[in-house]
Design a protein around this nucleic acid. Structure first.
Lengths: 134, 134, 134, 134
DNA sequence: GTGGTCTAGACCACG
DNA sequence: GTGGTCTAGACCACC
């Protein structure tokens, strides 16, 4: 198991969200598995050169979501995945992202075809990463 | 010309962004066309029960994007689409939107195939609307 | 790094534009360099006796131009120069500035030759300053 | 004598200023000469499809500057040119325009050489116009 | 009437 | 502490 989180400080995405997203992805793609132990707040903060508060917040969010469990004194662990969101809720949350992408993309002079291709390209990159790790 | 903007004040998305997106969409789908005049800052602010500054900010963003033109003392107008950003800058701005969509989608247990289909479906809807109006 | 911005409240030039121009100049001449941190919105507002919103607007414009990057919660930073606008858009924006200069200059009884010389002189000053600092 | 004013409603330059500028230029280049009569406020407004108030304001500005004279009941006339601004005042007003041009131009990724060339090109275009009319 | 600028001060998210 | 968003209300230039 190797978590390997990358932080982009220049991004608009808040750092704590970059962490939660990458941990969620690592779990979803099977790169880390149930009962795996994550680095401690302090260790991860040091490794990523971040404020421990930022890491703590990310872990708190993940714990609230039911992705990880912090066992005081022993560490942070992955817990079995349950579906948190129903299909419908998922769709409700994902559609605005799609439409923002299309709206901004078209306004920026990209053709629908270019958008489709760019999306497919990035999607396949994510799948490759997943395949490589499994 | 029928603009019909809906604001969701409870959303995380800033109000000014909801406005810019809906205007861009109205233009992209042909619901408003070149040379159409948009409601004045004050009129839209009153209609949406917002502060005029919020509407002004949305209009300013659209003007910077090259979607509209504000003519002081006369009003706000749709202008012919033109290429404002460099190719690289466009790519730089569209990639994070794509990756957020993929990351959130996969984290919500959608398969890559489902995401691809959902994206294609929405994209074709934008084009259909436009085709229907033209 | 020494920013040293001067505001002329009596001028017709909006304050936020005076700020953006002086920051751009500081960057172009090398007085501030990549990765330098600019004063915070509040700090600069206090130093210049301005409303923080006015400074924030100037910073927002610079960020859109690709001169700086605002990192919420951390501050404002100079970033490597990159091409944001398309070639055509750049031309579209620079031509009116040139023509205003020529028109006003000729109306003030300067000869074309004098204008040409004045322009060349200022241009070389910008380059000299930059050379001296680098 | 043919005045031939062109108004660009899409420009940021206020319409009344476009008029004053073009009249001043027409006088400065000798396209219209002393004792020439200009179109009346009403006639020019109709010809340019403008609000008469806008033309009236432009004429008022020109009269205040000493470029034209309105003789009630008879019309609007060019009056002999005097230098309104001293050399020094002229320089004080022209330098900021030059520096804005350079600052924005460099920020937009134009090279000094490109700026110099663009300036020279536009300047020669103005001179050609003048030559053609004389 | 129109949009543009600025101030004042609030609340929020982030680190 | 930082920047981002929004409201409220002022004053100005322009048409």
């Amino acid at each position: 198991m190797h978590l390997n989180i990358n932080i982009n400080t220049g991004s608009n995405v808040p750092i704590y969200k970059q962490i939660t997203e990458q941990v969620r992805m690592a779990v979803a793609t099977g790169r880390v598995t149930v009962a795996d132990q994550l680095p401690s707040v302090r260790a991860l903060a040091e490794a990523l050169v971040l404020n421990p508060n930022t890491v703590a917040r990310a872990y708190a969010d993940l714990a609230r979501e039911g992705v990880i469990e912090t066992r005081p004194g022993r560490g942070v662990f992955i817990i079995p995945k349950r579906k948190v969101l129903s299909r419908e809720e998922g769709r409700r949350r994902i559609e605005p992202l799609i439409n923002t992408l299309i709206s901004e993309g078209l306004a920026m002079d990209f053709t629908p075809d270019e958008l489709q291709k760019a999306f497919a390209k990035n999607l396949s990159r994510w799948q490759q990463e997943k395949g490589a790790k499994q």
